[in-house]
């Protein structure tokens, strides 16, 4: 059993990571270029992965890093290369 307080959040580190996640999320929906949006989304996934790893969920972090930041980005880039790079709105 995990004792209470044995593994606390590292508050400043956590806040920095959450700040980066927030910045990435806002940037990903604001930017007009879809390729940049996909790249920022990949960075977002990596920051999420760092947060998972810091909370001790290493399996989830690994999944996030490989699936979301790796293959997800690749698939979206492939889709962009088949369609258009500029967003319409």
């Amino acid at each position: 059993m995990v004792e209470r307080g044995e593994k606390e959040l590292i508050i400043p580190f956590d806040i920095i990571l959450l700040l980066f996640v927030l910045i990435c999320a806002i940037a990903a929906i604001t930017v007009r270029d879809l390729l940049s949006a996909v790249m920022i989304l990949g960075a977002y996934s990596f920051f999420m992965c760092l947060i998972w790893a810091q909370m001790g969920a290493v399996d989830v972090a690994f999944t996030e890093a490989s699936v979301s930041a790796g293959v997800g980005t690749i698939l979206m880039v492939a889709a962009i290369s088949k369609t258009t790079r500029r967003s319409k709105d």
Binding site: V58, D59, F62, T63, S66, V67, G70, V71, I74
Partner: peptide, 17 residues
């Protein structure tokens, strides 16, 4: 260790890509 079929399969697919 952390990992499993899902992550390993994705890494394998990434290598082929």
């Amino acid at each position: 260790s952390p990992g499993g079929g899902f992550q390993g399969g994705v890494i394998l697919a990434a290598s082929i890509i």
